[in-house]
Design a protein around this nucleic acid. Sequence first.
DNA 1: GTCTATATTTGGATAGAC
DNA 2: GTCTATCCAAATATAGAC
Lengths: 180, 180
Amino acid sequence: METFATRGYHNASLAEIAERSGLTQAGVLHHFRSKAGLLTGVLDLRDQSDLAQLGEERPRGLAFLAHLVDTARRNAEREGIVRLYAVLSAESVTSGHPAQEYFRARYAGLRAMVVEAIGEAADAGEVPAGLDPRAAASAVMAVMDGLQVQWLLAPEAVDMAATTDLVIGALLGRPVPGGG
Amino acid sequence: METFATRGYHNASLAEIAERSGLTQAGVLHHFRSKAGLLTGVLDLRDQSDLAQLGEERPRGLAFLAHLVDTARRNAEREGIVRLYAVLSAESVTSGHPAQEYFRARYAGLRAMVVEAIGEAADAGEVPAGLDPRAAASAVMAVMDGLQVQWLLAPEAVDMAATTDLVIGALLGRPVPGGG
DNA sequence: GTCTATATTTGGATAGAC
DNA sequence: GTCTATCCAAATATAGAC
């Protein structure tokens, strides 16, 4: 994980991964049939410990959106994870990238969850009437992703949690804090 | 540009770039002292034809934010450019990446421009009183960047211009279209 | 300014011993 | 399950002819 996060997929070498694992390069390839297989293994492992694992027991409605802000807050303490996903998700759009299908599915699944949560909030009358749930869902996800890149390049210039909260609040028509 | 956009920096090869340029690999390196030099050359060239070139003659206040929406709209017709920046900006956060300083400066400059535009709009009374200009600026940039990755992976699932407009409008307190 | 030729390094992957 | 040894391909970069 750390090597893919720090180097990206293509610039990561099995030699470095092996060294950090206390193995030889051949030893690593005994457990994964290829470098691409290792990457998907890393991504599958990661999946077991975060958002995608929420599944059917996720918070509902506004609580889910609040959970996204919490995730952004926790992410500020987990630079490695943030870097891994920020680098690999963008790299995955290059031709023939082994994680392309993974991220396509991840975004589709995540978008569906956010759309559903917004729909739940709308049913409870907590969302402006004309809001397009799909556009809003894409927007929330995009803000979180985009903030990560900015934050990785200049951590002191960006507050991921506060900014995510600002956008979600604005989309929901929440009055600006301290403002009119 | 096309090769770096399609492959990313590390996975792009001078051989491919040379072939697409009608040169040999040595011929390419006659004009650029290294692969890294070629990348910065591409980025500098690109800069002459878009946002960063706006400089002091940019639109002011809300007109600048409207210009960002226009940029998102035009980007939907320029997949190559979108891919180039989406891939390289994220890749640039990896250690030792040759475009890291370029993107750090680009984001800082862009953020300053958006902050200024929001300040102008605020002076004109067109912005909610409590809005944090720096957070809002980061948010707008982040939305645009994040949407690009989603759009590259699933173009039919994302409307970059409409979603950018949605977020800007929400931050400015504009009523939702068709809504209450 | 472009080429051929080549140096040099590094990459992923495989075979087979232990 | 881990190793050594090796293969083969590809990479960037340089030297020097034309």
